[in-house]
Amino acid sequence: MTEFLHAVLGFPTVLFSFLLVVVVGYWIAALTGLLDLDDVDASWLGLAGVPAGATLSIVIVLSWLLSLIGGQLVTGLPLQLAVLIVALAGGWSGARLLVRPLRRLYPDDRAPSRHDFVGRHCVIRTGQATPDFGQAEVTAADGSSAVIQVRTTGDDRLARGDNALIFDYSPDGEIFLVMPYERDH
């Protein structure tokens, strides 16, 4: 038991041992409901599709294991520093392999938003669209359509059947700002 403690508390494993304690604390807090598992995405690590808490946990556990094994095989500071670097790289590489199948557990089901219509074209459905009045039909990315409240800016006036481009959304009154748009067929 003392050899194990010596290995866990020896350099470079001690760095990952501290992080491993943090990971265990994170998972205890997550399992008791103190933390939400659906935290930020780890795309900044090149490990997108799985929450950062899970991804970092995998990186830390794998790095800890690799540094524990490597720390037993080498002696001397230069080689121990090499073990530290190899453990980090190996933990990250191993996490990349393990995260791929986990991505299916975290589908990218972002809730639809009215802001999704910004940048889409629409067709004016009322007699005209002005800075004070107008409705248009817009088609969402999934193929469904919606009738929305639209307003023009400046002196623009659009007639029924005209194509327009939605360039902004105002949550106050749920109004979309549109401008004339010539659509190439």
Rank of each mutant, 00 (worst) to 15 (best):
D108M: 15
P107L: 13
L88S: 11
A82S: 12
G91W: 04
S145A: 12
A89G: 12
Q135Y: 04
E137K: 11
T126V: 01
A164N: 06
G161Y: 00
P112W: 01
T152I: 08
L158D: 01
D156L: 04
S93M: 14
T152P: 05
A95T: 11
R151F: 03
C122L: 09
G134L: 00
I85Q: 07
I166G: 07
V138D: 10
E137R: 13
A95P: 04
T126G: 01
G143V: 03
F117A: 14
G134H: 03
L84F: 14
F133V: 05
T139V: 09
Y106L: 07
R157C: 02
R96T: 09
R100S: 13
G119L: 03
P131T: 07
P131K: 05
A89Y: 01
Q135T: 09
V83G: 02
I85D: 06
V138S: 09
L98G: 05
A136V: 07
H121C: 04
P131E: 03
I124A: 00
W92M: 07
L97E: 06
T153L: 11
S144P: 07
P101G: 06
F133I: 08
D156F: 09
F167P: 03
D155Q: 13
P112I: 01
H121W: 10
A89T: 10
R100K: 14
A82L: 15
R100H: 10
T152M: 04
Q135W: 02
A87Q: 08
G154A: 05
F117G: 10
T126L: 00
Q149D: 09
A141R: 11
L84D: 05
I166L: 10
A82V: 15
C122I: 04
R110N: 12
G119A: 05
D109P: 14
Y169T: 07
A159S: 05
S145W: 11
R125Q: 08
G91Q: 04
L97R: 10
P171K: 01
R110W: 12
A89S: 11
V138P: 11
D142Y: 01
G154N: 06
V123M: 06
A146F: 15
P131H: 01
I85G: 12
D108Q: 15
P101A: 05
L102N: 10
L98T: 02
L105H: 15
R151D: 07
I166Q: 05
V123P: 06
R120F: 07
V150Y: 04
S170Q: 09
Q149W: 03
V118P: 09
A82I: 14
T152V: 06
V99H: 09
R114V: 11
C122F: 05
